[in-house]
């Protein structure tokens, strides 16, 4: 693979704190290697800002291998940038060419208020999990794991839903700021397993109620969430969520 260097113009959202109105600032970066990750390009910019005596850009990031779900940049209008099924930290600069202008914003959603610059508060997701995204089993004397055979296809489907990293790209990509893909992935993960059966009814209604309380919008089936999801979480999960919800509301038991 041929490597090359590039000069770029960056327009980055700067906002001091939640109260500040915020706005774009323009920066130039030079000699960026195509081998760098997008966040390493930001490291270069931040080093430059520090050397100029300015405050570096604040952004969430941690594992830098696409699994922790911390990174959350809206790049040229796309959550996590141009590559399919890729987090910001795994996006590499060979996606760009010399002279490009890149606009970087935080996730935009009422339920994800900006903390500073590109960093937002996603604790609404934690509270949705608190409302029922678990199986109520205390630590201790669980039965032998192989006493509960589970159909491989079901287990695989459950795993595919459980692969959600809770980054919030689905919300940021949705014109309604809906959290349905996130929520449905958790409902599907647990509803597909026999262990999730006892709380199946109450889980889905409690989690949906919490989602509504947090100020996320409704789902209008545009499927932008799936298109931008870095882990390829399927909108089939939303269909499953809807049927789980209807089943729960109309069956009336275990509420």
């Amino acid at each position: 693979m041929e490597h090359y260097n590039m000069n770029l113009t960056l327009k980055v959202w700067r906002q001091k704190n939640a109260q500040d109105k915020g706005g774009f600032e323009t920066y130039q970066v030079k000699d960026i290697s195509s081998e760098m990750s997008f966040l390493e390009m930001f490291d270069v910019l931040n080093e430059q800002l520090i050397n100029e005596g300015k405050e570096p850009i604040t952004f969430d990031h941690d594992c830098r291998e696409g699994i922790c779900g911390a990174c959350s940049m809206h790049i040229n209008g796309q959550a996590h940038g141009p590559w399919a099924q890729t987090t910001t930290c795994q996006l590499h600069m060979r996606a760009y060419k010399d002279g490009d202008t890149i606009v970087v914003e935080p996730w935009r959603a009422k339920a994800f208020p900006v903390i500073k610059d590109l960093m937002v508060d996603r604790r609404a997701f934690d509270r949705i999990i608190q409302a029922g995204g678990y199986i109520s089993v205390d630590t201790g004397n669980a039965q032998d794991a192989n006493n509960l055979p589970i159909n491989k296809d079901k287990a695989d489907e459950s795993f595919a839903a459980a692969a959600c990293i809770g980054c919030g790209a689905c919300v940021a990509s949705c014109k309604n700021s809906s959290a349905m893909l996130f929520l449905s992935a958790k409902v599907a993960h647990l509803a597909l397993l026999p262990q999730g059966e006892p709380e199946r009814m109450s889980r889905v209604t409690n989690m949906v109620d919490q989602m509504d309380k947090e100020g996320f919008g409704s789902c209008t089936n545009t499927e932008a969430c799936e298109a931008e999801c870095p882990k390829g979480i399927s909108v089939q999960n939303i269909r499953r969520l809807n049927s789980e919800y209807i089943r729960s509301v109309f069956s009336g038991d275990d509420k």
Partner: peptide, 10 residues
């Protein structure tokens, strides 16, 4: 055993 009971999809 504990993880399977919690719904970890091994």
């Amino acid at each position: 055993d504990q993880c399977v009971a919690q719904g970890v999809p091994f």
